[in-house]
Design a protein around this nucleic acid. Structure first.
Length: 604
RNA sequence: GGGCCGCUAGCUCAGCUGGUAGAGCAACGCCCUUUUAAGGCGUGGGUCGAUGGUUCGAACCCAUCGCGGCUCACCA
């Protein structure tokens, strides 16, 4: 990209080099940081030498002196450079641009307005910035560019860095808490031959040497439980998982998942662990058990509320599923009736989910009711417990009520944040469940699980009763940075690539036209060719190009355009232009002269 | 994938019922040794997301496409 700003900075770069100054020197070691300096000097210590480095954010220059605001990792500090102190070097100081990175040393003083400032005795450019910084007052607000160019976003929007500091704090807190409980952090394969542990579509890749397809993991679950089998009784993995699904404010194709497994525990143990983890994070990160998220207050005081799924459906959807004796059809009918009622009152209610086929399963309907009518009402934090066995292929059944599994999900602000269960360790039952999943996959369910024989084999070796837990870290971070979008918790969220603006074959033609500026010129060139021939037109173009002022260019062009419009038949010019463009689109390497000749031959 | 909204200078944004593209910041030149988004005077900078169409004339109207945001669906 070529802009005046960029060009002038490239020019400055050149002139620095001509003066024998390296604009990208190899090292400079700062000894002081802005925030520390401001703290130490706040009582005006007698005399303090400091050595700092950072990015020039603002420049306020006078004739023989100037101020710059410098930003380093800890904050900002003002520096003052004067001809008196810097001598020859002041000419370099004067030319500093916002965005440059400099190293400076000097003595602290207070300005007339009272700001602690470094009076620079010596400084050097550490990295010359070629691209200008976004606007100093409004910063960068364009969401697209903030995600695509996170580096620029981080430079100018301080709160972004704070968000990621909070993210780091949360992750550190989790590690510290689990490590303190003697959990072992492990790393299991990201590239898996059989993706498992969740109902989701995986990304597929290929290993050249082994000549086999591999999948990016959708969860580490099955590997972690193999470790439990192996006798590692308390393990966790805090890592990225990948799901080939839509992108939204709540979904990124790769996200960070904490999974914890503990032998001789169960879903109740995991529930208490979850409460404790989240409660401590709240206290450590926001200094309080109460936080505010998107204008609503949430309390992470233990214990969190808990409710069975059946009760939640009764309370929030007004449907008592125990009365249906697993009759899917009549439950479905009442569900749709409920939806219709709500729709009458409020247009926002979504349409009926597509469960209305013949062999509809009772528990699938329950699940739908929960998702459609209950989930978003769960402000929480609240644990929803006892999910249908039907929808939980890796969880252990409740011995009292085998249609349910010992499982909970933690909801906050209508979103699922954690999922845990007593792990199914019966290899025969597990194999049956897998087989059901395989059948579902065969009949078109992309998210159904694969058969994992080796995992069944692991269970056949004997896995102790175990509790397992998964927590979505990105969503948790959303709560604590008070952001409605998961993208604000991910440094480089996935974005669609920008397509090139023009097809390759048009490039030469477009370039040639661009050389003589804009649309008006295209018309002018064509008309001139018609009237004056190639050589005369070439002259006109050269004349136009020689004018440095854009205004002068326009005047010349306008004169030509006006003469076109005065002519009868002038309106067919654009038809001709279209014809020309079509013809030329097949041409490959045209220089300007050939381009003009070609146009002439087409017109005549 | 559907719906709604957006895309104008490096950045933040104006641009009326279609009539030769604007401001502030940034840049460039000059002045200025205590500024705080410094100030003053002057100058340059645009494929108005792209491509077609309507029109004497399009940033503006229409169509298609691209990218983004929100939202619904999908999905945890």
């Amino acid at each position: 990209m070529s802009t005046p700003e960029r060009n002038s900075r490239l020019q400055k770069l050149k002139s620095l080099r001509e003066k024998g100054i390296n604009p990208y020197p190899n090292r400079f070691t700062p000894e002081d940081y802005s925030a520390d300096i401001l703290e130490k000097f706040k009582d005006d210590a007698p005399e303090m030498n400091v050595k700092i480095a950072g990015r020039v954010m603002l420049v306020r220059n006078f004739g023989k002196a100037g101020f710059c605001t410098i930003k380093d990792s800890k904050g900002t500090i003002q520096v003052y450079g004067s001809k008196e102190e810097l001598g020859e070097n002041f000419n370099v100081f004067k030319k500093l641009d916002a965005g440059d990175i400099i190293g400076a040393s000097g003595i602290l003083f207070r300005t007339q307005k009272g700001e602690i400032t470094v009076n620079v005795k010596d400084f050097q450019i550490l990295a010359k910035a070629i691209m200008p910084l976004p606007e100093k007052f409004h910063g960068l607000t364009d969401t697209e560019m903030r995600y695509r160019q996170r580096y620029t976003d981080l430079i100018v929007n301080d709160e972004i860095k704070d968000s990621f500091l909070i993210r780091a704090q949360i992750i550190r807190s989790i590690r510290e808490q689990l490590n303190a409980k003697d959990f072992i952090e492990v790393e299991t394969p990201v590239l898996q031959q059989i993706p498992g542990g969740a109902n989701a579509r995986p990304f597929e890749t290929y290993h050249n040497a082994l000549k086999i397809p591999l999948f990016l993991r959708i969860a580490p679950e099955l590997y972690l439980k193999r470790l439990i089998v192996g006798g590692m009784e308390k393990v966790y993995e805090l890592s990225r998982v990948f799901r080939n699904e839509g992108i939204s404010t709540r979904h990124n194709p790769e996200f960070t998942l904490l999974e914890v497994y503990q032998a001789y525990s169960d879903f109740n143990g995991m529930l208490e662990l979850t409460e404790e983890l989240v409660n401590n994070i709240a206290k450590q990160v926001s200094g309080s058990e109460e936080i505010e998220y998107q204008g609503k207050k949430y309390s992470f005081k233990c214990p969190f509320k808990r409710m069975t799924l059946t009760d939640a459906v009764k309370e929030y959807a007004g449907i008592d599923i125990t009365k249906y004796k697993e009759d899917a059809q009549s439950l479905l009918k009442d569900f749709h009736k409920k939806l219709a009622e709500l729709k009458d009152k409020n247009d926002d209610v979504e349409d009926k989910p597509e469960t209305a086929n013949d062999n509809v399963n009772f528990w699938k309907v329950v699940n739908d009711i929960f998702e459609v009518l209950v989930e978003d009402k769960l402000e929480g934090p609240i644990f929803i417990t006892h999910y249908p066995s039907e929808t939980s292929a890796l969880a252990k059944q409740d011995p009292e009520a085998p249609e349910y599994v010992e499982r909970f999900e933690l909801f906050i602000s209508g979103r699922e944040h954690a999922n845990a269960y007593s792990e199914l360790n019966d290899p025969v039952k597990q194999k049956e469940n897998f087989e059901k999943q395989v059948k579902a996959k065969a009949s078109g369910d992309d998210e159904a699980m694969y058969m994992d024989e080796d995992y069944v084999n692991a269970l056949e070796m004997g896995m102790p009763p175990t509790g397992g837990l998964g927590i979505g870290i990105d969503r948790l971070v959303m709560m604590f940075i008070d952001s409605p979008s998961i993208r604000d918790t991910i440094l480089f969220p996935q974005m669609k690539p920008k397509k090139p603006m023009q097809p390759e074959k048009w490039k030469n033609v477009i370039d040639a036209i661009n050389k003589v500026s804009n649309k008006f010129t295209e018309l002018a060139v064509i008309q001139s060719l018609k009237q004056n021939g190639v050589e005369a037109t070439q002259e006109v173009i050269d004349e136009i190009m020689d004018k440095t002022s854009k205004k002068e260019k326009y005047n010349l062009i306008n004169t030509l355009v006006t003469s076109i419009l005065e002519e009868p038949g002038g309106s067919t010019i654009s038809d001709k232009l279209n014809k020309v463009m079509k013809e030329l689109s097949s041409e490959q390497d045209l220089n300007k002269t050939d381009f003009l000749k070609k146009i002439k031959s087409i017109i005549e």
